[in-house]
Computed example of a mutant assay.
Amino acid sequence: MFSPEGPSLRELAVQALSSVEHGYDLLAPKFDHTPFRTPDAVLEAVASALRRIGPFEAGLDLCCGTGAGLDVLAQVCRRSVTGVDFSAGMLEVARERTRPAGRQVSWVRADARALPFGPAFDLVVSFGAFGHFLPRELPGLFAQVHSVLRPGGSFAFPVLAPPRPTSRAYWMLLGFDAVMRVRNAVWRPPFVMYYRAFRLSDVRGDLERTGFEVDLHTLPEFGRRRDGSPRVRMVVARRLS
Rank of each mutant, 00 (worst) to 15 (best):
G67E: 10
V148Q: 02
H146C: 00
P116N: 12
F56W: 08
S87I: 01
F121A: 01
A94T: 03
A58Q: 04
A110Q: 06
D71I: 00
V148W: 03
P100I: 02
F142S: 02
R79S: 13
C64T: 14
L43V: 04
R78M: 04
V105S: 05
L134N: 01
L62Y: 06
G131A: 12
V93E: 15
L43T: 02
T82M: 05
A88P: 14
L60G: 08
G59S: 10
A58H: 14
D111V: 08
V124S: 09
I53Y: 03
G65M: 04
R136C: 08
S106M: 04
L141I: 03
C63T: 01
L50M: 12
S106T: 03
L91F: 07
G102E: 10
S48Y: 08
Q75K: 14
A45C: 07
E44M: 04
D85Q: 03
R99V: 08
G83S: 12
G54T: 03
A120T: 02
A41C: 09
L91Q: 05
A143D: 13
L91A: 07
A88C: 09
R79C: 07
L50S: 06
R78K: 10
A88Q: 14
R78W: 05
R109G: 12
D61L: 03
R79N: 12
V42C: 07
A47T: 06
F86G: 03
A41S: 15
G131R: 04
L62D: 09
P116W: 09
Q104V: 07
G102D: 11
A47G: 15
Q75E: 15
C63N: 02
V72P: 08
A112W: 02
P135M: 08
L115S: 05
F130N: 01
W107Y: 11
M90S: 09
V148A: 02
R51H: 13
A47K: 07
G69H: 10
A74W: 04
P116A: 10
A114Y: 00
A120E: 15
E44Y: 00
W107N: 05
F86P: 10
L73I: 04
V124K: 01
R99S: 15
D40N: 12
G59C: 09
A101C: 07
P116S: 10
D40A: 15
V148H: 04
G54M: 07
A114E: 14
